Structure formats: C-alpha cells, structure tokens
Simulated assay, not measured.
Amino acid sequence: MGHRAAGGGEVDAVGPERVSGAAWREDGRTRPRHRFQQAVDEGGLPSGADPELFTRYVMTVATGIAVQAAGGAGRSELRQVADAASRNWPPV
C-alpha cells in the first residue's frame, strides 16, 4: 500500500518509484517559489526580487529552527531566531 508524496502522487515506500530526497526537496520548493514569483509579479515584493533565493532563505531558516528545536531549544529561543530572520526580510 502506498502513501501520498509531497506532490500529491501515490508512492510505494518500498518500490522503485520511491521519491528520492532530492526530488522531495525540489517539490517542497516549488509552491513557495511560485508564490514568491506571484508576489513579485503583483508588486508585493520588489521587482528585482529572486523567488528562488527567497525560497531557499525561508527553507534554510525553517530547517535551522527545526534542528534547534529537535536539539532542545525552547520556544522563546526559536522565536528570537524567527524574529531575527524577519528583520532581514526580504533578503535582497
């Protein structure tokens, strides 16, 4: 029996069609990248903004926060990191 992949397709966890880590990460970047592009197109972000850079920035911060949380960092410490990242937004 399969499970849902990040992109919505069915994947057999033990079969050859198993999604590779790289494909899973790329799929996870697609939606935010499209959303950032939409924000650039609609004027919500500066016209010279790079949606790929924004996506990598957000994902890197989120991954770092997750690693810190798994290592025992408290909510207030994690909030400080998120607040610091927000002060440096957008990363252009």
Rank of each mutant, 00 (worst) to 15 (best):
residue 81 V to Q: 13
residue 43 G to L: 02
residue 44 G to F: 02
residue 6 A to P: 03
residue 74 G to P: 11
residue 15 G to I: 08
residue 60 T to Q: 07
residue 33 R to L: 09
residue 83 D to K: 11
residue 37 Q to D: 00
residue 76 S to R: 14
residue 89 W to M: 01
residue 51 P to R: 00
residue 21 G to R: 15
residue 15 G to H: 12
residue 19 V to E: 12
residue 90 P to C: 07
residue 35 R to T: 06
residue 45 L to V: 00
residue 18 R to Q: 14
residue 1 M to E: 14
residue 80 Q to T: 10
residue 18 R to K: 15
residue 14 V to Q: 15
residue 71 G to Q: 13
residue 81 V to I: 15
residue 23 A to E: 14
residue 74 G to T: 13
residue 11 V to G: 11
residue 73 A to S: 10
residue 49 A to N: 05
residue 86 S to F: 01
residue 16 P to S: 12
residue 24 W to I: 02
residue 13 A to S: 14
residue 9 G to P: 14
residue 11 V to K: 13
residue 85 A to F: 05
residue 31 R to I: 09
residue 30 T to I: 02
residue 52 E to L: 13
residue 64 G to Y: 09
residue 30 T to E: 09
residue 46 P to T: 05
residue 37 Q to N: 00
residue 88 N to A: 07
residue 15 G to N: 01
residue 4 R to A: 13
residue 56 R to Y: 06
residue 91 P to R: 10
residue 57 Y to Q: 05
residue 62 A to G: 10
residue 92 V to E: 08
residue 51 P to Q: 01
residue 64 G to W: 08
residue 85 A to L: 02
residue 56 R to D: 04
residue 25 R to D: 08
residue 59 M to W: 02
residue 8 G to I: 07
residue 25 R to S: 09
residue 16 P to D: 10
residue 34 H to N: 04
residue 87 R to Y: 10
residue 50 D to S: 01
residue 80 Q to D: 12
residue 43 G to R: 00
residue 66 A to H: 09
residue 84 A to K: 12
residue 10 E to I: 12
residue 55 T to W: 02
residue 53 L to V: 10
residue 55 T to P: 00
residue 73 A to N: 05
residue 15 G to K: 11
residue 52 E to W: 03
residue 28 G to L: 13
residue 58 V to N: 11
residue 83 D to Q: 04
residue 22 A to C: 10
residue 33 R to F: 08
residue 2 G to A: 15
residue 58 V to G: 06
residue 49 A to S: 13
residue 84 A to N: 08
residue 78 L to Q: 04
residue 42 E to K: 08
residue 85 A to T: 04
residue 38 Q to S: 13
residue 85 A to H: 05
residue 37 Q to L: 00
residue 82 A to M: 05
residue 86 S to E: 02
residue 64 G to N: 06
residue 72 G to N: 12
residue 22 A to T: 06
residue 55 T to E: 00
residue 40 V to T: 01
residue 73 A to T: 03
residue 92 V to D: 11
residue 77 E to M: 12
residue 18 R to A: 15
residue 61 V to A: 08
residue 68 Q to K: 14
residue 90 P to Q: 12
residue 20 S to M: 14
residue 38 Q to L: 15
residue 20 S to F: 05
residue 62 A to T: 03
residue 43 G to V: 05
residue 17 E to W: 12
residue 55 T to F: 01
residue 25 R to T: 07
residue 35 R to N: 09
residue 76 S to C: 07
residue 72 G to K: 11
residue 36 F to T: 00
residue 7 G to T: 03
residue 92 V to Y: 09
residue 66 A to V: 01
residue 56 R to H: 03
residue 59 M to E: 06
residue 14 V to L: 15
